[in-house]
Amino acid sequence: MSEQKTLLEVKGLQVAYGGIQAVKGIDLEIKQGELVALIGANGAGKTTTLKTLVGMVKPAAGTIIYNGEDSTRIPVHHYVSRGLAMVPEGRGIFPRLTVEENLWMGAYYRNDKAEILMDLERVYGLFPRLKERYKQLAGTLSGGEQQMVAMGRAILSRPKLLLLDEPSMGLAPIIVQKIFEIIRQIASEGVTMLLVEQNAKLALKTANRGYVMESGRITYADSADALLANEKVQHAYLGE
């Protein structure tokens, strides 16, 4: 794994909303094929970090090198064609589009229709529930089904780096298991992932490595196993 090339390198990243500093100078490094967890309390700056990585928020300082290129100065709608996809916090599905239309939105930038249809079938294979409901308006789905739509939509963009913002939020344990099964499966297919989670234990058990964020700063960066074994992390985030 350590021989893999670096896909994302963040240095000294700072982000502010008006006068409020949400991210206060963080470094991140993600190698090709890794599944990295980013955990931390409410308001730590995790969502802000992800949004900055996909250009939805512009950094106040620092560099983001993605796939060998500076990626802070391109318009938001150019990120996805470079292989950066995000499943946003709260899922961000299009409520009055059907399930299938939502999935097609994931492939919006692509023109290879035959391949898109193949990917669509693959997503329906991962989430048979969505296939049953492909004509239903996404806003009428259950929370778990909406999360599946959001993940399926991201898969249809054929990401190289997939950012997941709290995919387990508000879901019943059995659905959370299902979602994490899919996360592991996508990872095993070679997609690099950065996973933000409140459910820190589950996230670290799934990930190779992890970062802990506290009020805008990275306080721990280590292998997932080391973080799981770290007493301070256990005490603060793992409820032990």
């Binding site: 938001v76 150019h78 990120y79 996805v80 946003p88 961000g92 009055r96 589009l97 097609w104």
Partner: peptide, 24 residues
């Protein structure tokens, strides 16, 4: 059409639509 779908998506959630590659 693709443009029509993008129009509807933009009317529901601009920031997520732009995340999908739609030029708002």
């Amino acid at each position: 059409t693709k443009l029509g779908r993008a129009m509807r998506a933009v009317s529901m959630n601009q920031s997520v639509a732009s995340l999908m590659g739609v030029n708002i």
